Amino acid sequence: MRISQLAAATDIPVATIKYYLRENLLHEGVLTSATQARYDDSHVRRLKLIRALIGTAGLSVSAARAVLHGIENPPDSRHELLGIAHQAATRPAADDVEIAGAQSLLARWGWGAEACDRSTQAALVQALQGLSDAGFNPPEALLDRYAAAMRDIAEADVEGVPTDSPEATMQYVVLGTLLMEPVLLAMRRLAQQSASFRRFGGSGTPESAGPAS
């Protein structure tokens, strides 16, 4: 198919596709002339993946490129696969960020700071500091309940990792980590709405929920 047909098949503008080509996110097509190339289903699949990484997961172009490179060139250690996903989604921590608070929580939860990267520990510290600055300090019991729920989710994530090939493992870990986070956030909000309705009651479904089916 020509690039115009590729754009129609993916609902992505030609100009955007050309941009992805220039940024080495999308592989080149087969040249049919000096100015035209032919594309196939592999380009359709890659464009859908790029759109998911940049749109749904909210990655920058450079972060998406790193993820795609990792999928194509998986590391030897399966544990390192998770690091690629987390590095793409987490800002590097400044050297002066004190992570002792995060390490104390990890020790209490039995997670082991040595298994967790510094940037993610710093992200937890900064997120909790943001809550404190806003005047909300979650009690330890609440954080412990969250930790228990997150442990269950993480165990389910890891148990589901395929081991038949490095490529399959890489795709599952990276995409399952990055693209499941919006799903988890939406599920949490829906669960909050349900729990609030059960506890506090209400006159009916919120207007934003739309008509019941």
Rank of each mutant, 00 (worst) to 15 (best):
V97F: 02
D133A: 10
E114G: 14
D95K: 07
I99P: 01
E98T: 08
L82N: 03
R108D: 07
L82Y: 03
L128Q: 06
Y146A: 08
L82C: 08
S119Y: 01
A134S: 14
A102G: 08
A100K: 06
R145W: 10
W109L: 08
R108W: 05
A122G: 05
D95W: 08
L124T: 13
C116S: 03
A94V: 10
R118Y: 11
A134K: 09
A107Q: 14
Q121S: 07
A94P: 04
A93L: 09
Y146M: 12
G83P: 01
A85H: 01
L142T: 03
E140I: 00
A115M: 12
A85F: 03
L124Q: 10
G110M: 11
A147F: 08
A88N: 07
A141K: 05
I84N: 00
I84P: 00
G101N: 10
L143T: 05
G112E: 04
T90G: 01
L143E: 01
V125D: 10
H86S: 14
A85W: 01
V97D: 07
V125Q: 00
A122T: 01
A93C: 11
S119D: 09
G110H: 11
L143Y: 02
G101D: 11
Q87V: 05
A127W: 13
A94Y: 03
P92Q: 00
S119F: 04
P92S: 10
T90H: 06
A102Y: 09
G83L: 01
Q87R: 15
A147Y: 06
Q121R: 11
A147P: 03
A94F: 03
A88I: 05
